[in-house]
Design a protein around this nucleic acid. Structure first.
Lengths: 199, 199
DNA sequence: ATGTTATCCGGAGCACTGTTCCGGTTGTCA
DNA sequence: TGACAACCGGAACAGTGCTCCGGATAACAT
């Protein structure tokens, strides 16, 4: 067998400067294009407008999800942190209400974002899956607090909550006339979450 | 001006037999394929499996919506009739509840159906738009009856209702784990519709 | 039975998509 | 200064929706 002459832990070369430049440029352009066209934006278009080739884009982000993840991870992390913060500073009811409103606003940042998140819910290989999980768990804590305080139906779980809010997020980027009623629709669903003793 | 020598109302030739055969075959195959792949099924695939060319398919159904409309119109009409019937035979609350459950079942018939309906909500040129409208209006009547009886929040309109049910329909074909909780999610939203006096 | 012709058929073609692959270039380190 | 791994960019492939048109043919008139 031919052994490597190099040391056991072969240190990989540092990332080249042009690679760093390209990655940054891709992210910058992708932010613009996704804001324009939604999460289903043409990858070829992103590459073209960034002045690079398809190969370059795919090497940096082998998957659309990985590109989205790079664009959205800060947003997710912020929402996770906000949940933890609200948990200590607000009442269970206010914390949940406020966080959901915050989340719903974020979902509307990019058209198609709700669909992208749902698509990766059960795909553990997706990058978005990982970054969503922490956020979902943080939200589930807020939910549980509200349930323990008797303010929310006990038969709703974290996945239900996530699904409902994403459903609202999705429906509101189907038609402008519905987007205008987003807050209203959220209030209806929130009312449905509230605990209702059987008559 | 050159007048037509033919009679004033020039009778068009009868539709050819092969055209009728092809149309029927397209509908049959489209039903199968859409059941398999959802409303975004490949039109080329439908044509191929029907043993016809793309031109034939597009002449019979110039738009995907027109094909869907042909597949779904009976379903829509039935839901409209059901609404009218329930209005006379059931209490306002039961009528609304039962109809929504019926509608929600229908939305799950084809994957992507909720998205297709929403996409044509504001596109008056779409065939689905027309066939949906009567159904939506019938549903709006049920809603109004329930509101007049003080059973549903008065600030919900027919579009809100349609949006909410479609949102549930959409979310349930995003992931199997959520589809399993469809009835549950519907009950939460229904709870939110119920009138809640301010505390 | 035969001829005319409107109607219909089917696929080639266009512009687009996501994704893979590879020959040539270039930055980096010895 | 060289060597070479890392990197670049685009060609290529298979798929999509949709349009267009030369040729086949069913329905009608004679």
């Amino acid at each position: 067998m031919t052994e490597k002459p190099a040391p056991a832990t072969q240190a990989p070369r540092a990332q080249r400067a042009d690679a760093q430049r390209n990655r940054a440029r891709i992210l910058q352009v992708a932010g613009t294009v996704v804001a324009e066209q939604g999460t289903q934006a043409s990858l070829r278009d992103i590459a073209r407008r960034a002045g690079i080739g398809m190969g370059t884009l795919y090497r940096h982000f082998p998957t659309r999800d990985e590109l989205l993840e790079a664009l959205l991870s800060q947003r997710f992390d912020r929402l996770t942190a906000t949940a933890a913060s609200l948990e200590t500073t607000h009442s269970p009811e206010d914390a949940l209400t406020e966080w959901l409103s915050d989340f719903a606003t974020g979902v509307s940042a990019y058209r198609g974002l709700a669909a992208s998140m749902m698509a990766t819910l059960e795909d553990e290989n997706s990058s978005l899956h990982a970054s969503c999980l922490a956020m979902r768990q943080a939200a589930a804590r807020l939910l549980k607090n509200a349930q323990d305080a008797g303010l929310v139906r006990p038969d709703v779980n974290g996945t239900d909550l996530f699904a409902l809010v994403n459903a609202i997020g999705w429906i509101t980027d189907q038609a402008p006339s519905i987007a205008a009623r987003r807050e209203h629709l959220i209030s209806v669903v929130m009312g449905g979450l509230k605990y209702q003793p059987s008559p």
